[in-house]
């Protein structure tokens, strides 16, 4: 039977103090994953003595997008990401990913930090942030460290967060100059759907050439990774040199290189290839290239 003591932190200091002082503390934010585990009386609660509700910690909230840098507080809900005008304008792929998550009720509670910290293979927040080259700030009473998001997950549902740390915020450099993005997701239905595959492409371009491309996918691999071979293929190429189909094939091969042939590969290989192909086509079209 599940037993724990429920604590509530009202400030970041109080939160860090509790993490410092106590052991076997599980953080609780929007609760949309943890409450499911609680309903199932999941074994993970065997190792939880304290459940620490952090939803009242205001320091973990807020979105700040500057010219050079951006920050998203870990407690930012998906609903806030969808409705934030700056996100919509400057980083529309983040809004698109957030709007595809769960339902209105889920997005009103679920947080971006929670989605990352839970680290499900199908979590939709990863691919846009990895495409941004984002880092997470992990804070403990002793200080903070920054880790590249792509290095944050060790295995599905397992991150490098230490027991005394909290995921405070996500920080990233804002894309510069002329840039384009595409977010795509395949689900089994049109709402309340777990990603079969999701994909973000973000590319800075200059003079008809891709300056810096980042392709990342969710649910295609056990934990989210950037597709470096596709990035390498796109980087430095002029629009005329880019073949969307080839980009898709490279991505599909890269995915299978990571996962090996799995039961889902016969579907995921062509589907991922197609999503990458479409993302690249979107990029070329939005950049005004008419082949």
């Amino acid at each position: 039977m599940v037993e724990y003591q429920l604590l509530r932190a009202h400030s970041l200091d109080e939160l860090l103090e509790i993490l410092d002082q106590r052991e076997n503390v599980q953080l609780l934010a929007g609760g949309t994953d943890l409450m499911v585990d609680l309903h199932h009386q999941d074994q993970k609660f065997d190792k939880i003595d304290y459940l620490l509700d952090i939803t009242a910690v205001d320091e973990l909230k807020g979105i700040q997008l500057g010219d050079k840098k951006g920050e998203i507080g870990a407690l930012t809900t998906h609903a806030e990401l969808v409705s934030n005008p700056e996100i919509k304008e400057k980083l529309p792929f983040i809004a698109a990913a957030a709007s595809s998550i769960g339902s209105t009720q889920i997005r009103n509670r679920a947080t971006i930090g929670g989605n990352l910290a839970n680290a499900a293979a199908c979590a939709d927040s990863f691919s846009p942030l990895i495409a941004l080259g984002a880092e997470v700030v992990l804070r403990s009473k002793g200080g903070a460290r920054r880790v590249l998001l792509e290095d944050f997950v060790e295995w599905p549902y397992q991150t490098i967060i230490k027991p005394d740390e909290v995921l405070e915020k996500i920080v990233f450099a804002m894309p510069q100059g002329e840039y384009y993005s595409s977010y795509q997701k395949i689900g089994r239905r049109k709402a309340l759907s777990i990603s079969r595959i999701s994909l973000t492409l973000l590319a800075e371009v200059e003079n008809g050439r891709v300056k810096k491309a980042q392709v990342a996918s969710g649910a295609a691999t056990p934990f989210p990774v950037p597709f470096r071979k596709v990035n390498d293929y796109l980087n430095g190429k002029s629009f005329a040199e880019i073949d969307p189909i080839e980009a898709g094939n490279i991505a599909a091969d890269e995915m299978v290189g990571i996962t090996g042939e799995r039961w889902s590969t016969p579907y995921k290989r062509p589907a991922l290839g197609k999503l990458v192909e479409r993302a690249v086509e979107d990029l070329l079209e939005e950049a005004g290239y008419n082949g």
């Binding site: 395949i186 089994r188 079969r196 039961w263 889902s264 016969p266 579907y267 062509p270 589907a271």
Partner: peptide, 17 residues
């Protein structure tokens, strides 16, 4: 008529071949 049947003509099952 799920994603797999429409795209590749057959269903796939977790743990299946």
């Amino acid at each position: 008529l799920n994603l797999e049947r429409v795209l590749i003509g057959r269903a796939l099952h977790k743990g299946g071949k």
